[in-house]
C-alpha cells in the first residue's frame, strides 16, 4: 500500500542532567567541591518505535514532560538520538516555536529571505513566494521595520507563513495552532487543512487539545514518561488520554 515516510526505530534519548546548561569554571569548581560530577542520567525517551505512512496524520498525546517535544526534535533532525535511528523521506518542515529565531536587527523583508534559506530554499524561489507570505502574515506595512519592533503576534504569523508555504512532505507541528488571535487561528487551521488535503502531507501533531487532535488526526501515539504506551487508530487513544487527564 502507501509507503512508509517516517521510520522510528527503537529510539532512546539521554540527557546528562549535571552537564546541562551553561558551563563555567565557577560551576565546575562548585560541583567538584560538592562531588556532583558524577553522571545523572535522564531518559526523556525510551525505546520508541513506530512507522508512519504517507498521508497519515498522527497526533502525539501525553502529559507535560512525557517526551513529546523531544520526539519531534529527533524526527525533525535537530537532535540526534542516543540510541536507535530515525529515517524520513521527503522535505521535513518543523513548525516549532515559530516566533523565535528571527534576527532582531534585521527587517521583516530580510528575515523572510534568511528564514527561507535556513529551510533550504533558493533566493529565487523565495522571491516567487514573497507576496504570498507577506499577504498571509499581514505584515506588508511593516516590511522594512526591524523585527525587534514587531509584536509577538506578528512574529508568530510571519513564522507560520514562511514555514507553511514550503510545500512540505512531512509537517511537524508543536502547539502551533494556538498562535495569534481567533481570526488568525482559524486562518492558519484552514491553511493547514488545505496543505494536508491537497498534497497528501504527512503530519505529526502535538497538542493538549483533544478536540483539535480528534478533528485533524486519524492515528495517534500516547507517550507516558518517555515510553510509548499506545499506538494506532486515534479514537481509542484519545479516550485513554482523556482518562489519564481526568484522574
Amino acid at each position: 500500500m502507501s509507503e512508509k515516510v517516517i521510520e522510528v526505530d527503537d529510539v532512546s534519548v539521554m540527557f546528562n542532567l549535571k552537564k546541562q546548561g551553561k558551563f563555567s569554571l565557577k560551576n565546575y569548581f562548585q560541583s567538584l567541591k560538592n562531588k556532583e560530577l558524577m553522571f545523572q542520567e535522564f531518559w526523556p525517551l525510551q525505546n520508541v518505535s513506530f512507522n508512519v505512512k504517507k498521508g497519515d496524520r498522527v497526533g502525539i498525546l501525553g502529559l507535560n514532560g512525557a517526551g513529546k517535544s523531544t520526539l519531534l526534535k529527533v524526527i525533525a533532525g535537530v537532535m540526534k538520538p542516543t540510541k536507535g535511528a530515525v529515517k524520513t523521506k521527503g522535505r521535513v518542515v518543523p513548525l516549532l516555536e515559530l516566533s523565535t529565531g528571527f534576527d532582531k536587527s534585521y527587517t521583516g523583508r530580510e528575515n523572510i529571505f534568511l528564514r527561507g534559506a535556513t529551510l533550504g530554499f533558493s533566493t529565487k524561489y523565495m522571491e516567487e513566494r514573497f507576496d504570498e507570505i507577506v499577504d498571509f502574515a499581514e505584515i506588508r506595512k511593516f516590511l522594512n521595520v526591524p523585527v525587534s519592533n514587531y509584536s509577538s503576534g506578528m512574529r508568530a504569523r510571519l513564522g507560520f507563513a514562511i514555514s507553511t508555504m514550503a510545500d512540505p512532505d512531512i509537517l511537524i507541528l508543536d502547539e502551533v495552532l494556538s498562535v495569534g488571535d481567533a481570526k488568525f487561528k482559524k486562518k492558519s487551521f484552514k491553511k493547514m487543512m488545505n496543505l494536508i488535503e491537497s498534497r497528501d502531507t504527512t503530519v505529526l501533531f502535538v497538542s493538549h487539545s483533544t478536540r483539535q487532535v480528534e478533528k485533524l488526526c486519524n492515528k495517534a501515539i500516547l507517550l507516558e514518561n518517555g515510553q510509548m504506551t499506545m499506538v494506532g487508530e486515534s479514537g481509542p487513544i484519545i479516550e485513554k488520554y482523556k482518562e489519564i487527564t481526568d484522574k
Binding site: S105, Y106, E110, L114, G116, A117, G120, S122, T123
Partner: peptide
C-alpha cells in the same frame, strides 16, 4: 548545495549589520 543560499544570506548579513 542545499544550504549555499543560507551561506549567502548569512554572509550578506554579516557585512550589512555592521554598518546599519
Amino acid at each position: 548545495m542545499k544550504y549555499k543560499y543560507l551561506l549567502y544570506e548569512l554572509v550578506k548579513k554579516t557585512v550589512k549589520l555592521d554598518y546599519r
